[in-house]
Design a protein around this nucleic acid. Structure first.
Length: 926
RNA sequence: GCGAGGGUAGCCAAGCCAGGUCAAAGGCGCUAGGUUGAGGGCCUAGUCUCGUAGGAGUUCUUGGGUUCGAAUCCCAUCCCUCGCACCA
C-alpha cells in the first residue's frame, strides 16, 4: 500500500495545492520573483520546463524559509508570429500543419479554429497553465493576464506617457528591409535567404552626362580623386528616370529601389547598356572620364553603375587590366591618391600581384578587397594635394562636401545578396516614416541603467560584463509596428506598440493584476496608475478603496527581488526592462537582481521545434512523473549552464527518487538507542543542511541536490554499514528523515508532500519550516573518527586487492605519541619547510635522529594530502586513535571476516609498524 | 566579422577567480563479487597505465611561458554555444 507511485502523489498534492500558492501581503518579509512570460504559440517542451521550474524551486525554498513568496505568471500574446501561423494554417501549409497536428498534438477540431490568431494563443495559454500546474509550479494564478487585455493596454498607455514625457520616445525615419509584395517590413524570421545581410549606407556620386546624371554608389567617396572611368554592364537595360524632377540614368532595379527611399521616380525611357559604353561623364572632383564595359556590374546592386578606382580597388584594377590586355583603353592609368604603409604606390596592383591573382573570378578577390579597404581605412592618408587627411576623416568630409555641393544623395542597400522574403520576393530597403523609436542611444539614459546594474545582484556573475556591453552597444529601438496584436500607439493609433516594448515593467502589474480587473477599463486613466504606482494624488480618482488596496500591494511586493530568463534575452528584453524601470519608478522600486539561464539540448542536439527535435513537457511528466522531470532538470546542470535532456538519464533520476522514498519509509520508525554513529550521522546532517541552504541561496540547484540527495544518501549507506549487528538504527533517524524530506521538498514536492504525511509532519511540506543547522549537534570528534576509519578501510581493501593472498588476520598499529607531536607541530605551522629544523632542536627528537626527520617528512606529505576539514580540527583537538580502532574492532572483523588486532606501533615486532603515522596507522595483513 | 561564455577521464559534470588538500568530488554507463533469487532491485569494489603492501608513471583541446610546483596564472591556437535588433 506504500508503493512508490508518483502519479498518486501528484493527484494527492494537487488537491491540497489548489489555492495554496495564492499570496497576499502579510507581516512576513516578502520575496518576489518573476520569470519572462511565455509567448504561447506552441506546446511546451522540456526546455520551457526548466525555465519555470528553477524559479519554482527557489520560490519553494524561500517560502519554507518563512518568506511571503510571490511567483506570478501571465501570457505575452502581442506581436506578429501567430498572425503568420494562422495564415499558414488557413493555407494548409504542410509544414505548419505537421508541426501543430503531429508534434504539438493539437486535435483536428481545435486546429481548424487556428485560422484565428487569438485562438492559437488562447489554446496554448491554457495548455501552459495546465502543464505548469502538473509540474507543481507554485504560481498565484489569480494574477494571470494576457497582454491584449484592455486593462493591460491602459497600463501600457500610462507607461508610455511617462516615457514620452521623459523624452525617450522620438519620431524618426529608418531604413528597413521591406517586401513590396507583403507591403511590410521583413524580420529575420521572415527571411528565406540573406539573414546575414546588413543595410549599408552608400553615398551616390553624381556624374554629369549631358542633361542627365549617372549616380554611382560608393562606400569610399574620398576615392573620387582616383576615378579613371565608370563601369556599365553592356548587357543590362538601364532607364532614364526623373528622380525628384531631375534626370538620372540607373538600372531598372535601382529605379524601383530609389522609389522606396524618399524619392519620386518617373521612368521616361529605357537605355541599352551597350549605348552607354564609351560615352563620357564628368564630376567636378575628377574631371571627365569614359564609361567602360564590365560584365561584373550587377544591375541589382545599388544603382547598377559603378565608379572605377583601379589604383585602390582590386576589382577595378583587374577589370581595367583585362581590357588593356585586349588592347583597349591603354591610355588609362590608375590614379593613386592614398598612401598606405605596407603597399607600393598603387596598392590594388600591389596586392593583386602579390597574391598572384590572374583573373576577375578568383575566389580571393573579395578577401583582397576587404584587406585593402581595412588597411587604407585604418592606416591610409590622402596625398597632400588632396588634403593630406587620414582616410577615416577624409571619407566623411568628402561625403559631406558632395552632399552639400555636388548633389550627392544617400542610398541604402544590402551588403550581400540575395535577400529573399518568405513569400519568395526580393527584399528591398525602404525608408519608413512615422517610425517611432525608444531612444536607447541617449547617454544619460544609458548612464542611469549602468548605475542600476552596479547595484544589482547578477547570477552568474559573468553576465555582468555582457550587460555592460549591451548597454554600451544599444541603439535606438524602433518601437512601433504596423501589423500584429497589441496596444495602439498613443501618438499614432494606426500603429501598435512593438511587442518587446510592451513587456518591460509588467512585473509591477502583477502586483495588482487580480484587483484591477474589477475596475472598468474606461476609468483607468493615467492618474489612476500614477496613484497606484507613484503615490501621486489627484482629485476625482474612481474607486478609491480599491486603488488603495492596489497601492498597498504594490508597495508591499515591489521591487521584484529576482527576474529569471534565458541568456538569449540579455541583449534585448532584460536590458530594456532596466531602461524602462529607471524612467518610471523611484529608486527604491528598481529591480534587485537577475538570474540568467543557459539553453537546452535534447540528446546532445539543440532543441528546435522546426526541426522536430523537441520533447514535450507534458509527455515527459506523463512518462516519468513531475518530480522526476523536476529533479532531473535541476540536477543535471546549474541553471546558467546548458543542460542536455537524455531519457536514459531521466530514468535513473526516477530510480533515485524511488530509493529516497523507500529509504525514508524503511528507517523513519526506527526506535533503537542512539550510538556514536548516530551522533556522527546527525553531525554530518548539519553540514548538509548548511551547504544545501547556501547553494539554494545562490540558485545552485545542482549543488544543492548533490548535498541534499547524494550527500545524505552516502552518509546513510555508511551509517548502515557501521550499525551494530541486529540493529535497524535509532530513533534519531526520524529527525534525519524529517530534515531530509524538507531539504528535497523544493525539488520533488509531490513525493515530499506524501512523505511529509507519512512522517506525521504538520500541514503541507510546502509550507513547513526549512531545516536549520544546529551547531550543538556538530560532533567533530565523531566525524574525525569515522573519517579515520573509512580511510583505513580503504587502505586495507587496496592492500588486500594487491597481495592476493587469503588473509588470516589484520593488525593495525597506531603511531607513537612522538609522531603525533611532530604531526601537530607541522600541521599548525605556517611555514612547513622550516618547521622541521625547529623540531630537530628538541633534544628528545634529536636523539631519535634519522627516524625523526623521516617521520617529519612523511608527516609533511601526509598533511598536504589530507583535506583541511580533517587537519584543522586535528590541530585543535587530538583524537585517540587507539580507542577508535578498539571500538571499531567488531566492525572491521565483520567487514573483512578475519580477526583484527590493534596495537601500539612501538610494541609491535613488525617492521611495517614503524611506518605508522598519525591518521594513517600501519596495516599488516597475514 | 564583432561582443559574451565555454572546452576536464566512456558520457554528464565539480574543481579554475584566491596555484601545492588533484589521478582529479558526484552522477550515469560498464565490469566483478555479494544479497535477493528471475520482471529497468539493493549493497560492496573496480573502471588512464604499471605494480604481490597502502606506491609509481603519464593526463585536464593543442603549443609555448611564469613558478620549487599549474587542470588552476599569462600568451597563442583550434573547436563549440549564445547574441548582433525592428524579432519573440
Amino acid at each position: 500500500m506504500n508503493e512508490f507511485d508518483l502519479g498518486k502523489f501528484e493527484a494527492e498534492a494537487q488537491e491540497q495545492w489548489t489555492h495554496a500558492f495564492e499570496s497576499n501581503p502579510s507581516d512576513l518579509e516578502k520575496f518576489y520573483l518573476t520569470v519572462a512570460y511565455p509567448y504561447p504559440s506552441g506546446a511546451m517542451h522540456v526546455g520551457h520546463g526548466r525555465t519555470y521550474i528553477v524559479p519554482d524551486v527557489v520560490a519553494r525554498f524561500w517560502r519554507m524559509r518563512g518568506r511571503q513568496v510571490l511567483y506570478p505568471m501571465a501570457f505575452h500574446v502581442t506581436g506578429a508570429p501567430v498572425i503568420g501561423i494562422s495564415k499558414r494554417i488557413a493555407k494548409k501549409d504542410p509544414k505548419t500543419v505537421h508541426l501543430y497536428r503531429d508534434l504539438y498534438k493539437v486535435p483536428q477540431n481545435v486546429l481548424d479554429e487556428f485560422t484565428d490568431p487569438l485562438t492559437i494563443v488562447r489554446h496554448f495559454a491554457s495548455e501552459y497553465q495546465r502543464v505548469m500546474t502538473a509540474c507543481g509550479i507554485s504560481i498565484d494564478w489569480r494574477r494571470k493576464f494576457t497582454t491584449v487585455d484592455p486593462t493591460y493596454s491602459k497600463f501600457i498607455e500610462w507607461q508610455w506617457k511617462h516615457l514620452y514625457e521623459a523624452g525617450h520616445v522620438i519620431k524618426g525615419v529608418h531604413p528597413v528591409r521591406y517586401c513590396t509584395v507583403d507591403d511590410n517590413p521583413v524580420g529575420d524570421h521572415d527571411l528565406l535567404e540573406g539573414d546575414k545581410a546588413e543595410v549599408i549606407k552608400f553615398t551616390l556620386v553624381m556624374f554629369r552626362i549631358g542633361d542627365a546624371c549617372i549616380p554611382t554608389a560608393t562606400l569610399r567617396p574620398e576615392t573620387i580623386h582616383g576615378v579613371t572611368n565608370l563601369w556599365a554592364n553592356p548587357g543590362v537595360t538601364y532607364v532614364r528616370a526623373l528622380v525628384d524632377g531631375s534626370a538620372w540614368i540607373i538600372s531598372k532595379e535601382a529605379a524601383e529601389k530609389i522609389a522606396l527611399q524618399d524619392h519620386t521616380v518617373e521612368i521616361k525611357e529605357e537605355i541599352a547598356g551597350q549605348d552607354l559604353i564609351d560615352k563620357t561623364v564628368s564630376h567636378p572632383l575628377c574631371g571627365t572620364v569614359p564609361i567602360l564595359p564590365a560584365d561584373f556590374v550587377d544591375p541589382d546592386m545599388a544603382t547598377g553603375l559603378v565608379m572605377s578606382v583601379p589604383a585602390h580597388a582590386p576589382f577595378d584594377y583587374i577589370a581595367l587590366r583585362d581590357l588593356q590586355h585586349a588592347g583597349k583603353y591603354t591610355q588609362i592609368k590608375p590614379l593613386p591618391l592614398i598612401k598606405v604603409e605596407g603597399y607600393g604606390e598603387i596598392p590594388a596592383q600591389d596586392a593583386v600581384e602579390r597574391a598572384g591573382i590572374t583573373h576577375q573570378m578568383d575566389s580571393r578577390m573579395d578577401a583582397l578587397t576587404q584587406e585593402i579597404y581595412s588597411a587604407e581605412f585604418s592606416k591610409g592618408k590622402l596625398f597632400d594635394r588632396f588634403g593630406g587627411k587620414p582616410v577615416r576623416v577624409a571619407r566623411d568630409d568628402v561625403a559631406a562636401l558632395m552632399i552639400e555641393k555636388y548633389d550627392s544623395k544617400i542610398m541604402y542597400e544590402f551588403d550581400t545578396r540575395p535577400v529573399i522574403c518568405r513569400c519568395g520576393n526580393k527584399v528591398k530597403v525602404k525608408i519608413l516614416h512615422d517610425q517611432w523609436f525608444l531612444k536607447y542611444s541617449d547617454p544619460v539614459w544609458k548612464k542611469q541603467v549602468s548605475d542600476l546594474i552596479l547595484d544589482m545582484a547578477l547570477v552568474p556573475p559573468e553576465v555582468r560584463l555582457e550587460f555592460d556591453r549591451t548597454v554600451d552597444w544599444l541603439k535606438d529601438w524602433a518601437c512601433t509596428r504596423r501589423v500584429g496584436l497589441g496596444t495602439r500607439f498613443p501618438w499614432d493609433t494606426t500603429q501598435l506598440i512593438e511587442p518587446l516594448s510592451d513587456s518591460t515593467i509588467y512585473m509591477a502589474y502583477y502586483t495588482i493584476a487580480h484587483k484591477i480587473r474589477e475596475i472598468d477599463p474606461k476609468l483607468l486613466t493615467p492618474e489612476v496608475f500614477d496613484y497606484i504606482f507613484l503615490g501621486k494624488k489627484s482629485p476625482d480618482l474612481p474607486e478609491k478603496k480599491k486603488l488603495d488596496a492596489m497601492r498597498k500591494e504594490f508597495l508591499y511586493w515591489y521591487p521584484y527581488d529576482f527576474r529569471f530568463s534565458a541568456k538569449d534575452l540579455i541583449s534585448n528584453h532584460l536590458t530594456f526592462q532596466l531602461f524602462h524601470h529607471v524612467t518610471i519608478f523611484p529608486k527604491d522600486k528598481l529591480p534587485q537582481g537577475m538570474v540568467v539561464f543557459g539553453m537546452g539540448l535534447l540528446n546532445g542536439a539543440k532543441m528546435s521545434s522546426s526541426k522536430g527535435n523537441v520533447f514535450l513537457l507534458e509527455d515527459a511528466v506523463n512518462d516519468f512523473g513531475a518530480d522526476t522531470v523536476r529533479m532531473f532538470l535541476m540536477g543535471s546542470a546549474e541553471p546558467w549552464q546548458d543542460f542536455d535532456w537524455r531519457n536514459e538519464l531521466v530514468i535513473s533520476t526516477k530510480k533515485q527518487i524511488e530509493r529516497f522514498y523507500n529509504t525514508v519509509l524503511e528507517v523513519k520508525d526506527a526506535s533503537g538507542e542512539p550510538h556514536d554513529i548516530d551522533r556522527w550521522l546527525i553531525s554530518r546532517l548539519q553540514s548538509h543542511i548548511e551547504r544545501t541552504t547556501a547553494a539554494l541561496t545562490n540558485f545552485q540547484t545542482r549543488q544543492a541536490l548533490q548535498e541534499a540527495y547524494f550527500g545524505i544518501e552516502t552518509d546513510l549507506k555508511w551509517y548502515h554499514r557501521r550499525l551494530p549487528e541486529n540493529s535497524d538504527g535509532s530513533r534519531e533517524l526520524h529527525a534525519l528523515c524529517s530534515a531530509w524530506v524538507r531539504l528535497l521538498a523544493p525539488f520533488i514536492p509531490f513525493t515530499g508532500e506524501h512523505l511529509w504525511k507519512e512522517l506525521a509532519g504538520e500541514g503541507l511540506v510546502s509550507f513547513a519550516s526549512w531545516p536549520v543547522a544546529d551547531k550543538n549537534l556538530v560532533n567533530t570528534r565523531n566525524e574525525l573518527a569515522e573519517e579515520l576509519l573509512s580511510r583505513t578501510v580503504e587502505d586495507i581493501e587496496s592492500i588486500r586487492k594487491l597481495i592476493q593472498i587469503t588473509p588470516k588476520s589484520i593488525t593495525i598499529s597506531i603511531a607513537p605519541e612522538w609522531k603525533h607531536e611532530i604531526f601537530l607541530l607541522i600541521a599548525k605551522s605556517h611555514d612547513r619547510n622550516t618547521v622541521i629544523k625547529e623540531i630537530m632542536k628538541d633534544d628528545a627528537m634529536r636523539k631519535r635522529g634519522k627516524e625523526a626527520t623521516d617521520a617529519a617528512k612523511q608527516c609533511t606529505t601526509l598533511i598536504h594530502r589530507l583535506p583541511p576539514h580533517v587537519i584543522e580540527p586535528l590541530t585543535r583537538e587530538p583524537i585517540n586513535e587507539m580507542e577508535i580502532f578498539e571500538a571499531a574492532k567488531g566492525f572491521l572483523e565483520k567487514e573483512f571476516g578475519v580477526p583484527v588486532h590493534v596495537t601500539a606501533a612501538e610494541s609491535s615486532e613488525h617492521a611495517k609498524a614503524a611506518t605508522a603515522l598519525p591518521f594513517k596507522p600501519s596495516i599488516v595483513i597475514e
